[in-house]
């Protein structure tokens, strides 16, 4: 079913919307949650929670991309769970999270910069990047894919992926400084 039709089901409060979303984007959401949580059962619970959250969010939300919206809610819920589960040791996202932490430690973020604003600045930064660098960055730090997964997805060598990420992080660090996000 097309995204527009599924969103119409949500707007009409038709519960088939949840099943259609699960059928279409469930595997992707599970992939994101599993990348972050490293546990199939936790990932499944996270996706179920995301389905309920979608039901609550639409309406009033009317996402332009149901895929990004559904996966985004899953990502947020998985991060939230990860943040509160200190016992979580097997997350595939440990490395990309530490890369983000090194790029801009929390204590270096300007006090008045909110996450929404930082996200807007990062969107602006990504639009200035090559399509290759942009896609690789998003796969790594939004979906938390491994380097090898990204290499296979885009037909790059792992070295090329690592190189693209290394440079993108360096450029983003400088860009965030110029935009007054980091101090």
């Amino acid at each position: 079913m097309e995204d527009g039709a599924i969103i119409e089901l949500y707007l009409a409060r038709d519960e088939r919307a949840i099943g259609e979303t699960e059928a279409k984007y469930g595997p992707l959401c599970r992939h994101v949650a599993d990348n972050l949580l490293g546990n199939t059962q936790d990932a499944e619970e996270c996706v179920n929670d995301a389905c309920l959250a979608l039901w609550d969010a639409i309406p009033p939300a009317r996402p332009r991309s149901l895929m990004a919206f559904a996966a985004g809610i899953t990502r947020n819920l998985a991060l939230k769970r990860l943040r509160h589960d200190t016992a979580q040791k097997r997350s595939a996202a440990l490395v990309p999270l530490s890369e983000l932490s090194e790029l801009l430690p929390d204590e270096s973020i300007a006090p008045d910069a909110g996450n929404e604003e930082i996200g807007r600045v990062i969107s602006g930064f990504l639009r200035r990047q090559s399509p290759e660098a942009r896609c690789v960055f998003v796969r790594r730090y939004w979906y938390f894919d491994s380097v090898s997964e990204i290499a296979v997805r885009y037909g790059f060598t792992e070295n090329k992926v690592k190189s693209l990420l290394f440079r993108a992080r360096n450029r983003l660090r400088d860009y965030l400084r110029k935009e007054g996000i980091s101090v």
């Binding site: 332009r64 990502r75 801009l104 996200g119 990062i122 942009r134 730090y141």
Partner: peptide, 14 residues
Amino acid sequence: PRLADAVGLIDEEL
């Protein structure tokens, strides 16, 4: 890191 949350707020089209 907060940056992980911020990256989650980039535009849907990206």
